[in-house]
């Protein structure tokens, strides 16, 4: 294959002008509540999801509206209740399983990777698993190595799974609704540091399709591809770069599987310089895959190799002075951009 196959992407729905300011946490809750009202097959399952509304309080109020039959507190049994989610999904329900910290996905790995991801294909397309696993990613919460990882790349690596990484309240709501209506297992990663992030969300019903990147800022000198909270980092960097006379385009793929290759490649062809920013580990990570996609699709248009900025390849340390060194920052993006644009 000389060129990567580029899926024909519909144009990305733009964030609305109107609407109310709500937090990302509220947007998630609204999406769940609306889907649960719309479809009685939707139910929630996880640790402390009911009265406690999760430690992040994202689900507050849902058990009051939908009752404990649909908002189900589980024991601390990630493998067990994720597996139960798979079984529910295979038999006509639409479960949304809550894994409190993305780090605990490791306990449910077999259920997700060997069971949920394989069922449809192995059954020759007969069975399906419309399961959503909601979980978190992101460091800098001073929670140390077992509560801070961003493991979304692992799941992006497995055919049969879809992976969603919202970066704004608007995207979170629209993407979560799509996830619940999708007939496949979907991993939905929320950055726990973004739950209080505010943004405009329309009152009315909308969904956002998977595999459609969103151009969060238009620019001409440089493309910054960023995921999840790194979109906020990229936007902050872009604002700083503007002061230096560098015009940065910020693109948010929103889903890593499926990946909107076309939008990424088009932007790279236009600007000729690309930085990819993601909070997963840099080695063998999302940044590596996206850089490869752009190299394959825009090689002759590039002025420089695609640069990557991921988390430092170390377990996340507790001490703030160390932890802050492990994540991409606006300053690091700006430095890299200046070098790419010959302005260092």
């Amino acid at each position: 294959m000389s060129m990567p196959s580029v899926s024909s992407a519909a144009s990305a729905p733009q964030a609305p002008e109107g609407g109310r300011e709500i937090t990302l946490g509220q947007a998630i809750r609204e999406a769940l509540a609306e889907e649960m009202r719309r479809d009685p097959r939707v139910l929630l399952l996880g640790e402390d999801v009911a009265e406690a509304g999760t430690p992040f309080k994202v689900l507050s109020g849902l058990v009051e509206e939908f009752g404990p039959e649909r908002v189900i507190d589980t024991p601390i049994s990630e493998a067990g209740f994720t597996g139960i989610g798979v079984g529910l999904a295979m038999t006509g329900m639409r479960p949304v399983v809550d894994i409190m910290f993305g780090d605990f996905l490791t306990l449910a790995m077999d259920q997700i990777v060997n069971q949920a991801a394989k069922v449809h294909y192995m059954s020759g397309g007969k069975l399906k698993v419309p399961l959503v696993v909601r979980t978190t990613l992101g460091a800098t919460r001073r929670s140390a190595a077992q509560h801070s990882q961003s493991l979304h790349a692992w799941f992006s690596h497995v055919p049969g799974l879809k992976v969603v990484l919202p970066s704004t309240p608007y995207d979170a709501k629209g993407l979560l609704k799509t996830a619940i209506r999708d007939d496949n297992p979907v991993l939905f990663f929320e950055d726990k540091m973004m739950y209080q992030l505010k943004g405009l969300v329309p009152e009315g019903e909308y969904t956002i399709p998977f595999g459609v990147a969103d151009i969060k800022r238009r620019g001409s000198d440089l493309t910054i591809v960023a995921t999840s909270s790194m979109v906020q980092v990229a936007l902050a960097a872009a604002a700083d770069l503007e002061q230096l006379g560098i015009s940065a385009e910020v693109i948010d793929p929103r889903t890593t599987s499926p990946l909107d290759k076309q939008t990424l490649i088009e932007s790279a062809r236009k600007t000729s310089r690309v930085i990819v920013v993601d909070e997963g580990y840099q080695s063998y990570g999302v940044t590596a895959e996206i850089a490869a996609v752009i190299n394959e699709g825009a090689f002759y248009y590039l002025d420089a190799p695609v640069k990557r900025l991921g988390a430092l390849d170390v377990p996340v340390p507790f001490s703030p002075v160390l932890e802050d060194l492990t994540v991409p920052t606006p300053a690091a993006v700006v430095e890299m951009a200046k070098i790419l644009c010959g302005r260092a």
Partner: peptide, 16 residues
């Protein structure tokens, strides 16, 4: 407190 003389040189914190 994430300090250098801590049992894990500040890398572990309260839970480790």
């Amino acid at each position: 407190l994430g300090k250098q003389p801590g049992y894990c040189r500040g890398k572990g914190g309260s839970m480790h």
